[in-house]
């Protein structure tokens, strides 16, 4: 399935909904969109991976790059992911210790009184 990207705003957060396959071929489009968002002024970015069917090292590299870019800009970055196969990828690469990973967009964009990161 081709990559799909859609952006919406939730509680002062920019939520990028990603769907389909994120791999060495499609990851550059994800990188471009994230760069566009930050350049346009987005500072609290959540990437929702609920619709992602495949994610490889190239896609993970793009997510790390976006997090670094936002860190430099004094922004925040988080992921929404509840699929066990994807969570296993984050565990194996130790990136679950790098990204805040939430189980839902509501948890990721909450005011701190909701549930925290899943890892």
């Amino acid at each position: 399935m081709e990559l799909s990207l859609a952006t919406r705003t939730v509680a002062e957060h920019t939520v990028l909904e990603v769907g389909g396959e994120v791999d060495v071929y499609t990851a550059p489009r994800l990188r471009e969109r994230l760069v566009e968002l930050v350049d346009a002024g987005a500072r609290n970015v959540i990437v929702d991976l609920a619709g992602v069917e495949f994610l490889d090292s190239t896609g993970l590299g793009v997510l790390v790059g976006a997090m670094k870019r936002l860190r430099v800009a004094n922004g925040t970055f988080g992921l929404v992911c509840s699929k066990e196969p994807l969570l296993k990828i984050f565990r194996i690469t130790a990136l679950d210790q790098v990204f805040p990973i939430y189980s839902s967009v509501e948890a990721a964009t909450g005011d701190g009184t909701g549930s925290g990161p899943t890892s």
């Binding site: 490889d56 090292s57 190239t58 993970l60 790390v64 790059g65």
Partner: peptide, 17 residues
């Protein structure tokens, strides 16, 4: 670098899976 990160993560996935 992005390339070094992707290479390292890619190998971690290969070794892990």
């Amino acid at each position: 670098t992005d390339d070094a990160l992707t290479t390292g993560v890619g190998f971690a996935l290969l070794a892990g899976f």
